[in-house]
């Protein structure tokens, strides 16, 4: 079975983002970029499924600028077999991303899509579910365990208050939650090998997908700052303070 893994290039999660002074967005100039952490988990899962023999080919796909090739090389170094970049400098909304992925899927015909539950830039947590709806495929969002068989997947999902297990007929869209696995670090030999793996670049415009934005960003602002309070000397001080202020 072929698995398609969409990956996104985002600001590295260790970097503190700064809002631009003119409030048009966050400052991306000279900021370290990396693969979205949830996408890393999805790549790791697809590669592990391949190592287990449940998957025969892992195809990583990214939609973004030329530099997203680096993100795809990371996926290849982790063990993906080949990669596709749909190149654009436009910042796409989740609905547009889902439509572009649906067009890629029409060509690639994978048995499953495994992708991160959300990207840590827009924090939308929507693309996988939208893709599943557009394709009329079943979805299993927020997976913490995936058991693939030939024509279905048994997925344990993180839900409020506990876990739910569902069985989805394949092809399906599965989105990865935090505890699905711990992604590996690519070894140097694998990084070298990844440079030789196939990476196709296609222009977004060649796909003929409507990617017009539906939302206009009016402004991006800093959240209100919360000022730190006082340091106390002992646990007893905490209790007396809380009591005085009627908190407990």
């Amino acid at each position: 079975m072929k698995v398609l893994v969409p990956v996104k290039r985002v600001i590295d999660y260790n970097v503190k983002v700064r809002v631009k002074a003119d409030q048009t967005g966050v400052d991306l100039a000279n900021v370290k970029m990396a693969m979205n952490p949830f996408c890393e988990i999805a790549v790791e899962e697809a590669v592990r499924q391949k190592e287990k023999g449940a998957v025969t080919e892992v195809v990583a796909v990214s939609i973004g600028p030329a530099q997203a090739q680096e993100t795809l090389r990371t996926a290849l170094a982790m063990g993906a077999d080949r990669a596709i970049l749909i190149q654009t400098d436009q910042d796409l909304e989740p609905l547009a991303v889902a439509k572009v992925l649906a067009a890629v899927i029409a060509e690639e015909a994978p048995g499953a899509v495994i992708m991160g539950k959300q990207a840590i830039d827009g924090d939308n947590n929507a693309t996988g579910q939208m893709l599943s709806a557009l394709l009329d495929w079943p979805q299993a969002a927020f997976a913490s365990e995936i058991v693939l068989s030939a024509d279905s997947a048994k997925v344990t999902r993180e839900i409020d208050g506990g876990l739910q297990t569902v069985d989805v007929a394949l092809p399906a869209v599965i989105t990865a939650d935090l505890r699905l696995n711990e992604p590996r670090y690519a070894s140097l030999p694998n990084i070298m090998k990844a440079k030789k793996k196939p990476l196709d670049v296609k222009e977004l415009s060649a796909l003929g997908v409507d990617t017009a934005p539906r939302l206009t960003v009016v402004k991006v602002a800093e959240p209100p700052k919360r000022s730190g309070g006082v340091k106390v000397e002992s646990a007893a001080d905490i209790v007396s303070n809380l009591k005085t202020n009627g908190v407990i």
């Binding site: 924090d123 939302l215 960003v217 800093e222 959240p223």
Partner: peptide
Amino acid sequence: IYAGNALETV
């Protein structure tokens, strides 16, 4: 957005 480090008005 960005884990609450920015607030986006759309």
